[in-house]
Design a protein around this nucleic acid. Sequence first.
DNA 1: GATGAATGAGCTTTCATTCAT
DNA 2: CATGAATGAAAGCTCATTCAT
Lengths: 215, 215, 215, 215
Amino acid sequence: MSDSSSSTPKGSRREPRQERSQKRVASILSAAGQLLEEVGYAALTTNAIAQKAGTSIGSLYQFFPNKAAVLARLADGFRTEVSRTLGRLFSLETARRSTIDLVNLFIDGIEEVQKRTPGFRYLFSAAKTDEAGAGEASEELEREIMGPLDDILAKAYPDVPEDQRRVCLRMIAETSKVLLANARHLDPATQTMMRGEVKRMLGLYLESYFAPELR
Amino acid sequence: MSDSSSSTPKGSRREPRQERSQKRVASILSAAGQLLEEVGYAALTTNAIAQKAGTSIGSLYQFFPNKAAVLARLADGFRTEVSRTLGRLFSLETARRSTIDLVNLFIDGIEEVQKRTPGFRYLFSAAKTDEAGAGEASEELEREIMGPLDDILAKAYPDVPEDQRRVCLRMIAETSKVLLANARHLDPATQTMMRGEVKRMLGLYLESYFAPELR
Amino acid sequence: MSDSSSSTPKGSRREPRQERSQKRVASILSAAGQLLEEVGYAALTTNAIAQKAGTSIGSLYQFFPNKAAVLARLADGFRTEVSRTLGRLFSLETARRSTIDLVNLFIDGIEEVQKRTPGFRYLFSAAKTDEAGAGEASEELEREIMGPLDDILAKAYPDVPEDQRRVCLRMIAETSKVLLANARHLDPATQTMMRGEVKRMLGLYLESYFAPELR
Amino acid sequence: MSDSSSSTPKGSRREPRQERSQKRVASILSAAGQLLEEVGYAALTTNAIAQKAGTSIGSLYQFFPNKAAVLARLADGFRTEVSRTLGRLFSLETARRSTIDLVNLFIDGIEEVQKRTPGFRYLFSAAKTDEAGAGEASEELEREIMGPLDDILAKAYPDVPEDQRRVCLRMIAETSKVLLANARHLDPATQTMMRGEVKRMLGLYLESYFAPELR
DNA sequence: GATGAATGAGCTTTCATTCAT
DNA sequence: CATGAATGAAAGCTCATTCAT
């Protein structure tokens, strides 16, 4: 297997330094995310994370200086995923779409991120619970999430004053948090329905500010 | 110190048990609520509750089998307060009022309960965080809160199917949680504004279901 | 002793609040001191202290906020013991005595304190090792120890400039540490002999500064 | 695994093992010494040593069975350095010099060793702290240090009985430890002054035994 | 041999809960 | 019943040491 000098038979040799570490880091973050879904914020312990990740507690602390750092990195990953997903959904032309369409895209994007990255909802909603220094990571995450939407609305509706827009964004953010937070206890059908309701509610709300001329 | 049994010759120092117990229980619950506001869910310890209540930790455990039970009883108290407050606000004739008025009354009622009973928001929103077994108490609390509104809507809009009504109620419940959850970090002016926005958003949403004839 | 209400049969009942606590604190401090002698600074753990004191780790932390506090309190006790012992030895008339007598009294006092309060030497010498926050306590202890001697020398030899006196005091302090530090590994006879040598050495040294007229 | 014989075709890459090993060992020891000065005994970790030495922790354990062994080897090096330095200072003719001169030479020699080999003072003074098994190495070191002085005194003052001489040597050893141990926290000027005081004190002390005829 | 990721015993500290008084 | 000292499981984190590559 080591076969250090000549052949490298199966193309598998040497997934050394970097790669193995990355895998461990990934498995730790994944474990943290899953545990967040399974046991919640309060019961999330570093030992449990390590165990679920199939590592030792020592390894966890080789990669992360402390528990908060694990959550911060998790939030980083979420931010990336959010950027990617929302960036894809909010293609350029979306600027032309109605606020309702924008809301739909946004909610679907958030949903998709949650589906792909377990634990997302906990960090997205953690600002209020703000335990153990997840607060900062959580706020950054929120900024990352709301930023793109802010830009689009700003361009699409330059007449709406910034203050107004900001207020609406907060409402969107908070409302979608609630949706995510409570989805956990609901069966899929109900989740889908609730998602529809949130879209409807936010749509009506935004329309009242951003498309008054349509009335 | 009191030598309550052996000596107390004349039996005059009645000092009715029940009442003292009730007072203790009340002070424990009050302390728990206040601490919830002051230090948050994560930092809430039974010893701190007892101390703030002016009792001993031993007494606390005389009345409550464990920490979760304290929170459960706290939620009970909130339920009572909610019933009283909403019952007062939703007097009979309110059945005639518009959905927007109903929403306003409801939101104001929730605000009032929070103002009067510190800690309320934590248990009302605890369903998602569901730490330390507050989950069940929290769900009951939610049922108690939404029940009166359900009744009123049911009477006022008998044509709207029950399923539909239920969905709307969930939306109202979740959305009002948003308001409470984030209020702590906001200055009073912003709180007032956000309250207005929530009313607006919920009003528009409910109107779309419950007052279609007005369109 | 407390005799709270009427009889107090055996005189043993209710050694409550304060007293029991004091005993625990005392046993914890005693255990810490003994462990210091037995295993040294590096191997001194809070768990070991609690175990040796016959308590639980929880109790230790009921009385002391952290490990450093245990050492600080230990140093406090040493300071008191030092004051008492040196105060007794340095009675007023000692001001008239020769420097050699003063040195003898001082060294004997230090020895006595060490004999009575195990662990003393570790904290007296900890300034250099200065692990885990014992540094401060250690420095205070040194000030307490050297203070009385400083006063006496100042009064007895007002002509010797302060700087000079200070330097000599440092030398005395450090040299007496030597004695303590190494005594542990020596048999009693050797210890006694070494003590005599230290007295001789310090006596000669001090005489050269404080009693030049005798030459 | 390394296929040391089969491949290495031309035998040119000799790279003498021994030497490389020696270099590694040397760098590890040097790193350990420097770290001792920088962070002290308590904070000295094997990983830090390896890192500072520019090796891996694995290599460190290839050469040393455990942490204590590193310190033991460090002490060995110190012994060699001490022998060399004191041997040079105490040339034959010094036998004629006064005890005061001998003390001066000795103290200066110790100072020099400390200057050249960082960490020296920690191991020279470690006998009392005796952490992590440095005790034995420390004692050997002390014997090595005091040996030459013993020889010189024995030859120069054959009339002084051996017991007497031994006692004096211990006093010299211990007193010079103190000097070194405390030097770290002092500014250079104070260090120089203290060194002078130690010389004076030890000189007076030794003179009282070794040069009675001079009186 | 060299590397450094991995390991896990052990340390400090917290807090829900018990129990002697 | 009231009290609060006592308990100890468990959490976060460190570091000497091992072992696969």
